[in-house]
Structure formats: C-alpha cells, structure tokens
Design a protein around this nucleic acid. Structure first.
Length: 284
DNA sequence: AATGGGCCCAACCGCGACTTT
DNA sequence: TAAAGTCGCGGTTGGGCCCAT
C-alpha cells in the first residue's frame, strides 16, 4: 500500500529538498514517523514532521499516524458485526464518522467512511426497500433500538463530545474505583456486542489488544479503546474489549440496567481481577 | 494477452473549531 | 479581543488492483 515510484520516494533527495512532499508514504517515511512518535510523542504535529526529518505537513503526518501507523489499529477486514454497527450508528448519528469510529476500537473514521461510501451506501442504493435487504439481522436490529438510541444519547446533540475526543487522544478521566470491572454482550446479531467496563483504574485491563505507543509521554499517542465521561453528572463509562468483542457500545451503568437480563451476556471481573462469565444482568 | 471498467483505499483539500499569544 | 497557528472533520479525488470481456 505504501509502495510508490522511486521518483516520489526520495525522502532525503536533494532535489526539492525544501518542498513539501505529497502522495503516498514510503516505508522509510513511515519508519521515521513511527519511531519519532513512539519515542517522543507528539507535541504539535508540525513539529513532529520537522523533528522526524520529513518533508510532510503536520496535517499529513497526523493523518498517516491516525489512519495507518497507530499500533492499536485493527488490520483485519471489517466484520459483519462491525458493519451492522456502522449501519446502526450511521442511522442514528449521520455521517459523523469520527464519533462512529470512536465507538469501534481499532477502526478509523477514514476507514469507516470509505467502507460506508464504497459498500454500504452503494448496496442500500441498490435496494430501494431501505437497504436492509442483505442483512439477515435487520429485524433484530429493529428489536434492539436501545443500542442505537443509547449511542445517540451518549454521543449527544453537540458536534463535540467526549468520546470523539478520546479517539483523538485525550486523556481518559478517572473512573470511580467503587465500580467493578465488567464487560457485557448483547444477544442477537443485530445488536452485536455491547461492552462496557468501569474499572478501578484506567489502565491495562481495559485497553484493547495493545497500547504500546500509548505508554509514551504524550497523551495523543495510541490511546487504545479509551474511555471517558458520558456527559452526565456522576456517570462514567469505560470500554473493555477482548478478542471476541469487535465492537462496543458505550453506556452508563444505569443505561445498561435497562436491558432485560435475558439480553445480556455478562463477563465480569471483580475489583480484585477475578473473572467469571455469563453472570446475567447483575452488574452490581 | 490486452484492455476497459469498476472497486477500494490512501491521501488531499477546504473549512470550521479550538488554542495560544 | 483579535489574529495567527494548529487541529480535526467530512467530502472528494487519484491511482492501483482485480475481473470480465
């Protein structure tokens, strides 16, 4: 993907040494950017470009990191379940790709936007009946309105909201220590998984896959699945994602309790780190 | 084997919001 | 308070790949 003609890849070339480069990134540029960010973090993106010795705009560096180099990105294709999430969230949030991406750990807004534009929208246009023709889960999606609605509520009416800022690298707010850590999964393919965890700490156990760069000094680096406040006083949520849960909904404990117990699979950890599975809706 | 069209994805562009001075 | 700098978002584009002809 990053291959390019040699004429465009002369990172250190003398010709046009001061001219900003555009186009595809070479492996060497990727290496420089990755090394720079993982070792020193990000102060400003324009300085990253400079200090990494790249003739790229800060904007371009940011885009490359966010969409390709970030260690917490998923490399595998978007799954059926994730596709359903995209459809569901797009329906409730519109084309707020960054907000949608913030609810899908490891996925970027660009990736989701591309996926939507190239596949889902096209398919929906092809089927006049509202674009649900191909999904055997359409009914279940309709039967689980809460997931969408809650996502919508938590996203809030404003353009700026905390989930989005987490995806952009903001620091997670402290999570109240009194809550046990748990993750739950809504039954039914339409609803997909709902995973949520409130932890005694904001670290390690709740992050998705890895958070290598996130351990660096700058908060903008590789924040994993993140977490944050839900915008309502006194409520915090935190995401927990494991290999089987490839998408999440964020909700408060109160929101979660609105689901009937039969709709929930609960994997739970207590605050001592003890794990049990399918414990029903007893989140307390 | 050549080629034309469609698809997919990485990256750019323009703009608004936010932050800093 | 205003201006400049920076960031982040959504829309769009360009090019490579794949497949049918």
């Amino acid at each position: 993907m990053v291959e390019k003609p040699a004429s465009q890849a002369d990172v250190g070339g003398e010709v046009e040494a001061h001219k900003e480069r555009k186009g595809l990134w070479s492996p060497e540029e990727d290496e420089r950017l990755y090394t720079r960010i993982t070792r020193h973090g990000v102060s400003t993106w324009s300085s990253v470009a400079q200090l990494a010795g790249l003739r790229r705009s800060g904007k371009s560096c940011r885009l490359r990191w966010m969409n390709y180099l970030r260690p917490d990105l998923k490399k595998e294709p978007i799954s059926k379940r994730e596709e359903e999430t995209i459809i569901s969230l797009q329906k409730s949030l519109g084309n707020r790709w960054s907000v949608i991406a913030a609810k899908m750990p490891g996925r970027t807004d660009n990736e989701i936007k591309n996926y939507w534009n190239s596949r889902i929208r096209k398919r929906q246009n092809a089927s006049p009946a509202g674009g649900k023709g191909d999904s055997g889960c359409a009914k279940q999606q309709g039967d689980l309105p809460a997931a969408d609605d809650k996502a919508s509520v938590l996203a809030g009416p404003r353009a700026k909201e905390p989930v989005s800022s987490m995806a952009s690298g903001a620091t997670a707010p402290p999570v109240p220590a009194r809550f046990p850590l748990f993750a739950c999964q809504l039954l039914g393919c339409g609803g997909g998984a709902a995973a949520i965890a409130a932890a005694g700490t904001t670290e390690s156990t709740t992050t998705h896959e890895n958070n290598r760069a996130g351990s660096e000094s700058d908060a903008s680096v590789g924040n994993g699945s993140g977490g944050g406040g839900d915008g309502r006083e006194g409520h915090y949520y935190y995401c927990a994602v494991d290999g089987d849960i490839d998408m999440i909904h964020l909700m408060s404990f109160d929101d979660l309790l609105e689901y009937p117990a039969s709709d929930l699979l609960m994997d739970a950890w207590d605050r001592n780190g003890l794990y049990s599975t399918n414990t029903g809706n007893s989140v307390d």
